[in-house]
Simulated assay, not measured.
Amino acid sequence: MAVIPIDLAGRSYQVRTGSGLLKELPDQCGALLRKKAVPVITDTNVAEYWRGAVETTLAEAGFEPHWHIVDAGEASKSWSVLEELVDWLLAEEVERGDHIIALGGGVIGDLTGFAAAILKRGCGFIQVPTTLLAQVDSSVGGKTAINTRAGKNLVGAFHQPGLVLADLDTLGTLPIREMRAGYAEVIKYGILGNRAFFDWCEENGAKVVAGDRAAQEYAVCRSVEAKAAIVAEDERETKGARALLNLGHTFGHALEAETGFSDRLLHGEAVALGMVLAARYSARKRLISDTDAQRVSAAIGAAGLATEISALGLDCNGTKLAAHMLHDKKMDAGTLPFILLNSIGEAFLDRDVSMEDIAAFMEEQLEKGV
Rank of each mutant, 00 (worst) to 15 (best):
A184F: 11
Y189M: 11
T238N: 13
Y183G: 04
Y183D: 03
G193L: 05
Y281L: 03
E256Q: 10
L273E: 07
Y183C: 03
F197H: 01
G190W: 03
K188R: 10
M275V: 06
G260W: 14
L244F: 05
L305S: 03
N246M: 07
V231M: 01
A283F: 08
G268M: 11
V296Y: 04
E237T: 06
N317R: 05
E258K: 08
F197T: 01
I191Q: 02
L265C: 09
I230H: 09
S282D: 04
Q294C: 03
E308N: 10
Y218N: 14
A278H: 03
F251T: 11
I300C: 09
V209W: 09
A219S: 15
A214M: 13
A229L: 09
K239M: 05
R222A: 15
A228G: 08
T291H: 15
S289K: 11
T259S: 12
I187K: 03
H249R: 05
D234F: 00
D199K: 13
G313L: 12
N317D: 15
A226F: 13
L305I: 09
G205H: 03
G205P: 10
E237R: 00
C316E: 14
R295T: 14
A283V: 02
I288T: 06
V271Q: 08
T307W: 03
V208Q: 09
G304K: 04
A254S: 15
I230G: 07
A302L: 02
L266I: 00
L312D: 06
L273V: 04
R280E: 13
N204Y: 15
V271G: 05
D212T: 07
G182C: 11
A278V: 02
Y183I: 06
E185L: 09
R242L: 01
T307H: 03
L247P: 00
G313Y: 09
H267E: 09
T250C: 11
G193C: 08
A293T: 02
A219V: 06
H253R: 11
T291V: 15
R236E: 10
S297E: 15
L247M: 06
A293I: 00
Q294R: 12
S223C: 08
Y281C: 00
D212Y: 01
F198A: 07
K227H: 07
R280P: 03
G211D: 09
G205Q: 06
I309T: 00
L245P: 10
K285E: 08
Q294T: 12
A303C: 13
D292E: 14
S262A: 15
A243C: 08
C221G: 08
A214G: 07
A196W: 04
L265K: 06
A241G: 01
D292M: 04
A311D: 15
E202Q: 15
A299I: 02
L287F: 09
A196F: 10
A215G: 00
L312R: 06
V224H: 05
A298V: 01
A257P: 08
D315G: 13
E217R: 14
D315S: 15
S262W: 08
A283R: 02
A243E: 00
A210P: 12
R284P: 03
L245K: 07
A243S: 01
F197I: 06
G304R: 11
A210N: 13
F198Q: 01
I230M: 04
K207V: 05
R222K: 15
F261Q: 12
R213D: 09
A272N: 05
Q294A: 14
N246F: 10
H253L: 12
E203F: 12
H249K: 07
V208S: 08
L273T: 01
A283S: 11
Y218F: 15
S282V: 04
C316R: 12
S297F: 10
